[in-house]
Design a protein around this nucleic acid. Structure first.
Lengths: 342, 342
DNA sequence: AAGGGACTATACAACGTTGCAGTACTTAAG
DNA sequence: CTTAAGTACTGCAACGTTGTATAGTCCCTT
């Protein structure tokens, strides 16, 4: 029903191939011909059929982005930024939600969509290390963890250093009993492990003891988990005077518990999170956090993929690891000032 | 490079079409043949080429979802739910972010991706009414507004009634000076208009005067807009004793302003929002709100699309309008209890 | 015993596009 | 004036799949 090259060719009085040449910007087309074809294209409202193009060329112009959960504000932000970056290369982004399920992630890696996508940007949650090796040749860029010598290209901040920065901020404020919320046992929970490592390192560096009672596990990284963990900390014998939460949602949950119990923040307990999501800028009190350079992460991920996709010389080669900067953002939850209830 | 029907056929010693029949679950294939083909498929790791299938059948198995902004938690939630609902029909969802830009929305409606998608679920922000008529035949389901006699299928809650419910909740608490935050002038801002209408209707029904000074405009529907509007309300001569915010983010922004100025919520000012996003369950105080039945919205939208796509009898026919229920959710910001600072 | 139907399997064409090979004409160089 | 190089355009085949048409086999009915 919609017009094809054939229809345009008929109307412009040229061959199908010439129309194709015009569409693809082939140089050796006479200006007059080009104009005539253009006119026909516009008159008929011709749009190239992507399926046919893909069938012929093997390229779909679609890349997939797989994230654990779109409702986590951090991933929503990253997704938006990647879509923008991809748009500049006129790529379409297919967003896949894994819900952190190992099976879903394995399917992706095994090449579930295979023919449909040119590349994959993947933020793994359940999988790590060797399991991430892509079976088919689809280029992949990993996001968000620092996996040394991993099987694929990789963009991440230095999680361990960032966690240490957050913890050091708390020690520099004179806090001595600093808890961590978000510890996870699963061997694949690389993020949690790295942030825990950074936390411990900073404690040790400040001459503080590592106390297992202060390392609170969290099932997920949601507000509810943070709120529950904070409650357990407060109910314990020797409650903390500061908390480093492994992401902002945990921190917001913790804040909720603290405030509803009348604990002053940061007076009695200082709180710092991780991610710098928008919510943290409007919570009461506003939330100190570690801000990864998300726009740069998105841009680099897309650039890396483009490099692999380019048929140029740099297409092959060993996996690359790109580090992105992060900043410590100090707000009320550690620095004080505004109406922090007590 | 990846195997095709041809390769499987060769290995199984049957014709290409027979393999195709097995893949598509055609009934009249002898069990022995079917088994042999299945074995070949698994041995070779055959995966159907979607592009070729689409080229042949015209169907891509992909539907698009276009929302204003993924970072708005309400849309992130809807997106997740739609992806789930689509998965049950083994459809893939392509998520498009319009940023509320009229041009981007017009492109979509004009059929930008045309061949690539089987249908479109669209939550318009800048466009309304006639402009939404789809040029090509791609089925479309509209989300989130109540456009009477619109050009396409449509799933929505009764915005006006819901806004009236929220406002009535405030009047029933004895509040007399009730402000609204989120008013928008643009004729296409249908949501804002309808919520304003419901607000006014409920005021009138309660015997209260409509006071333009209490109807606060908001550029966007973000926290910052709510915070700013609330500040202006508090600085005015006769501040309100309750606020109905047109979405939860505005309400959370308003809460932030109220608390940082030491105004008691709900003691001095009661606050209610709209959407029931997760944040509102963990804010301080927790946020009363109107909860649309989001899972049902998602399910119905996908079902409607499926109906149009089915080559069955119900495929054509006049646009349908489906109404989804909503509930009033009363939490601390209007009902009191927990540690609402004062 | 003949006819009809259900079952099993196949061959061929087409979907719309692009790579490759090739033709005809023009211009510049020797 | 011939030859080579470049320009402008065309035709054919192929990408991998599925719908239609067809043919052969077997069993059941009349």
């Amino acid at each position: 029903m919609p017009p094809g090259l054939k229809d345009v060719a008929a109307r412009a009085g040229v061959s199908i191939k010439t129309v194709s040449n015009v569409v693809n910007g082939y140089v050796h087309v006479a200006p007059a011909t080009r104009a005539r074809v253009q006119a026909a294209i516009e008159a008929l409202g011709y749009v190239p059929n992507i399926a046919a193009r893909q069938l012929r060329s093997g390229r779909s112009g679609v890349i997939a982005l797989a994230v654990p959960e779109l409702q986590l504000p951090y991933f929503a932000e990253i997704a938006g930024l990647i879509v923008q970056a991809a748009e500049r290369r006129s790529w379409t982004v297919l967003i896949d939600q894994t819900d952190g399920l190992a099976e879903r992630e394995r399917n992706l890696v095994a090449g579930l969509r295979r023919h449909a996508i040119d590349g994959l940007i993947f933020s793994p949650l359940a999988l790590a290390g060797e399991e991430l090796a892509l079976r088919d040749g689809t280029p992949m860029v990993l996001l968000g963890e620092r996996i040394w010598h991993g099987p694929a290209d990789h963009v991440a901040i230095d999680n361990t250093a960032a966690a240490a920065d957050a913890t050091r901020h708390l020690t520099s404020l004179g806090r001595r009993r600093i808890a961590a919320i978000g510890v996870q046992d699963r061997p694949s929970a690389v993020t949690a492990h790295q942030r825990l490592a950074g936390y411990r390192a900073a404690l040790t560096a400040a001459g503080l003891a590592v106390d297992p009672a202060l390392e609170m596990p969290a099932e997920g990284f949601h507000r509810a988990d943070g709120a529950a963990a904070m409650a357990r900390l407060l109910d314990a014998d020797d409650p903390p005077d500061a908390v480093f939460c492994f992401n902002d949602l945990l921190a917001l949950g913790a804040l909720r518990t603290l405030l509803s119990r009348g604990v002053s923040v940061p007076g009695d307990v200082a709180v710092i999170g991780f991610d710098d999501i928008e919510d943290g800028r409007f919570s009461t009190p506003t939330l100190s956090t570690i801000a990864p350079d998300a726009p740069r992460i998105a841009q680099l991920a897309v650039d890396l993929l483009a490099e692999r996709l380019g048929d140029g010389p740099a297409a092959a080669g060993a996996p690359r690891e790109l580090r992105v900067e992060h900043r410590l953002v100090v707000r009320e939850s550690t620095a004080g000032t505004a109406g922090a209830a007590g």
